[in-house]
Each structure stands twice: as structure tokens, then as C-alpha cells.
Simulated assay, not measured.
Amino acid sequence: MIAKVIIFVLIIAIIYFLIIPKFKSKKPSDSGESFVECSKCDTFVELKDSTLRNGKYICKECLK
């Protein structure tokens, strides 16, 4: 009985740590169609026209 519970928990752990993270997107795609908000001027710019600094996106105009 206890062995069945341990096997069940191991299967759930494998699914949680190995399979589910593959479906989550960790960063936006680089297709150029994604827009992000500049943390300084609050405008929306394309992802390719922004820079990631300290976990926040900054547009190229604000970097100047």
C-alpha cells in the first residue's frame, strides 16, 4: 500500500518538474510582434526595440 502511494507521488513529481515547465513560456518571443511597456516612459514598444535591464524593459529612446 505504501509503495503505491510513493510511486504515485513520484509520478506526480516527475510530471510537475519535467513536463509542465516545457509548456510555460519564460521569455517573450523574438518575433517582433510582441509589445512590452517601457518602465521609464510607460509607452509600448516592440520587443526588438527594447532592452531588458534589471528585469524591466526600457525603450531605446530612454536609453539615450
Results as ranks from 00 to 15, higher is better:
Met1Thr: 15
Met1Cys: 13
Met1Ile: 13
Met1Ala: 09
Ile2Trp: 12
Ile2Ala: 15
Ile2Asn: 15
Ile2His: 14
Ala3Glu: 11
Ala3Asp: 15
Lys4Thr: 15
Lys4Arg: 13
Lys4His: 14
Val5Arg: 10
Val5Asp: 06
Val5Pro: 03
Val5Gln: 09
Ile6Leu: 09
Ile6Met: 06
Ile6Lys: 05
Val9Ser: 15
Val9Glu: 11
Leu10Phe: 14
Leu10Asn: 12
Leu10Asp: 13
Leu10Cys: 15
Leu10Arg: 11
Ile11Met: 07
Ile11Leu: 09
Ala13Leu: 10
Ala13Asp: 01
Ile14Val: 11
Ile14Tyr: 06
Ile15Leu: 07
Ile15Met: 04
Tyr16Ala: 08
Tyr16Leu: 06
Leu18Lys: 08
Leu18Gln: 10
Leu18Ile: 07
Leu18Asp: 07
Ile19Cys: 04
Ile19Trp: 03
Ile20Ala: 07
Lys22Gly: 12
Lys22Leu: 13
Phe23Met: 07
Phe23Val: 04
Phe23Trp: 06
Lys24Leu: 01
Lys24Tyr: 04
Lys24Thr: 01
Lys26Phe: 00
Lys26Glu: 02
Lys26Gln: 03
Lys27Asn: 06
Lys27Phe: 03
Lys27Ser: 02
Pro28Tyr: 06
Ser29Glu: 06
Ser29Ile: 02
Asp30Glu: 13
Asp30Tyr: 09
Asp30Phe: 09
Asp30Asn: 10
Asp30Arg: 11
Ser31Gly: 05
Gly32Ser: 04
Glu33Ser: 05
Glu33Gln: 08
Ser34Arg: 14
Phe35His: 08
Val36Trp: 02
Val36Arg: 00
Val36Gln: 00
Val36Pro: 00
Glu37Cys: 06
Glu37Arg: 08
Glu37Lys: 08
Cys38Tyr: 03
Ser39Asn: 11
Ser39Met: 02
Lys40Glu: 10
Lys40Phe: 05
Lys40Met: 07
Cys41Lys: 05
Cys41Phe: 07
Asp42Ala: 14
Asp42Asn: 14
Asp42Trp: 08
Asp42Ser: 15
Asp42Pro: 09
Asp42Phe: 12
Thr43Arg: 11
Val45Trp: 13
Val45Pro: 07
Val45Gln: 09
Val45His: 14
Val45Met: 11
Leu47Arg: 12
Leu47Phe: 10
Leu47Lys: 09
Lys48Asn: 14
Lys48Ser: 14
Asp49Arg: 11
Ser50Gln: 07
Ser50Asp: 09
Thr51Arg: 13
Thr51His: 13
Leu52Ile: 10
Leu52Asp: 12
Leu52Thr: 12
Arg53Met: 08
Asn54Trp: 07
Gly55Pro: 01
Gly55Asn: 00
Gly55Ala: 01
Gly55His: 00
Gly55Tyr: 03
Gly55Glu: 00
Lys56Met: 01
Tyr57His: 00
Tyr57Phe: 03
Ile58Gly: 03
Cys59Trp: 01
Cys59Tyr: 03
Lys60Thr: 09
Lys60Gln: 10
Lys60Asn: 13
Glu61Thr: 11
Glu61Val: 11
Glu61Pro: 06
Cys62Ile: 01
Cys62Gln: 00
Cys62Phe: 02
Cys62Ala: 01
Cys62Pro: 00
Cys62His: 04
Cys62Val: 00
Cys62Asn: 02
Leu63Thr: 04
Leu63His: 00
Leu63Ser: 02
Leu63Pro: 05
Leu63Asn: 04
